[in-house]
């Protein structure tokens, strides 16, 4: 019985191996890392495979931490991360790693307040106050002052955050650190932090589930997730004092606003930038590629893919809930691609 089923497995496998002689097999380029951009990356690799049959990309969404470790150890050909690598981490890598921003993601404050039908305005002070546990009622003056005409209930605010380490949490806490010195000192930023208040939901679906079900709750998820699930999300006060709705345009604007201060290695946080019409809670997500490539075929394939991703790939971002890169960043990156050395 077991033998028979084993044979049934082996026969097609053998046929498959025969059908694909080694020379015609496309090169396999392996990558691993962040989970947040996984939907767009898998879309890109599938679309790119249609235009280039010499290469196949394989991407494992094991998390940014794993991506950084694996690319440092050289077990994958490229890495991906939601938070830029630290100087220490870069030093540990055997060669120079270049960060390439791929798309932008916005993070929104979703809420469930019975009786409130319109969009709430949340100031930076109110948001930091809620998440640090100082603003505890929905009708607190910090919230009410920005929402005249909205009748806010006197109920306790139930805070929901991500329990799993995630790039989304990094973006959110990075923003709160800039919005509130108190948050920066007491909690700080990271993929997981020591939350002063609140419940932890696992993944976007966990946070969404809790917010949807729990009256008077507030949480944060990626823009695409909130749109897809049709949960209301707040307009957030930006550095210019405007209340801005999160959209692809306002997120892309945030990246464009940060170009002036963009370091040459693209390791930049774009939360709370100066400028008008920008949504303040957004971030790049990055691919990590070695400047000195080891293999000609794989290195050339990576370079081809990066160019394609910047030119043709960006149009796939919007439908999946990401924001495309602004043209200024794309031209900076095209210059950076030139730096990659591929052995001939």
């Amino acid at each position: 019985m077991i033998l028979k089923s084993l044979r049934m497995l082996l026969v097609p496998a053998a046929l498959f191996t025969v059908a694909l002689p080694a020379s015609a097999r496309p090169a396999l380029v392996n990558g691993a890392g962040a989970t947040f951009p996984y939907p767009i990356y898998s879309k890109w690799f599938a679309e790119y495979a249609k235009t280039d049959d010499k290469v196949n990309f394989n991407y494992q969404s094991i998390g940014s931490g794993g991506g950084i470790r694996q690319v440092t150890a050289g077990t994958v050909d490229f890495g991906a991360t939601d938070g830029p690598m630290s100087d220490d981490q870069l030093k540990q890598a055997p060669g120079e790693l270049i960060h390439f921003p791929t798309v932008l993601g916005g993070v929104v404050a979703v809420y469930n307040v019975p009786g409130v039908t319109g969009t709430l305005n949340l100031s930076q002070k109110a948001l930091a106050g809620i998440f640090i546990g100082r603003v505890t009622k929905w009708n607190d003056a910090a919230i009410a002052s920005a929402n005249s005409g909205v009748s806010l209930p006197p109920n306790d605010i139930i805070v929901v955050h991500r329990s799993d380490g995630s790039g989304t949490t990094f973006i959110w806490t990075d923003f709160l650190s800039k919005a509130s010195p108190e948050w920066s000192k007491q909690v700080g930023k990271g993929t997981s932090v020591n939350w002063p208040v609140g419940l932890g939901g696992k993944g976007n679906e966990g946070v969404t589930g809790l917010v949807k079900q729990t009256p008077h709750s507030i949480g944060y998820v990626e823009l695409g997730y909130a749109q897809h699930n049709k949960i209301p999300f707040a307009k957030i006060e930006n550095a210019a004092g405007e209340y801005v709705d999160c959209s692809q345009e306002s997120v892309t604007k945030a990246a464009a606003a940060a170009v002036a201060t963009m370091p040459a290695d693209f390791r930049v946080s774009i939360t709370n930038p100066a400028g008008s019409g920008v949504y303040p809670i957004a971030s790049f997500t990055w691919l990590l590629v070695y400047r000195q490539q080891k293999e000609a075929v794989k290195g050339a394939a990576l370079v081809r893919f990066l160019r394609w991703m910047l030119r043709d790939g960006q149009r796939f971002a919007g439908p999946l809930g990401y924001a495309p890169l602004p043209p200024e960043v794309i031209s900076l990156e095209e210059t950076a691609i030139e730096k990659i050395n591929v052995p001939s």
Binding site: T35, G63, G65, G165, T191, S192
Partner: peptide
Amino acid sequence: AVLANEFTEAT
């Protein structure tokens, strides 16, 4: 639970 939650992004 904490292992499942935080292991992947522990940098």
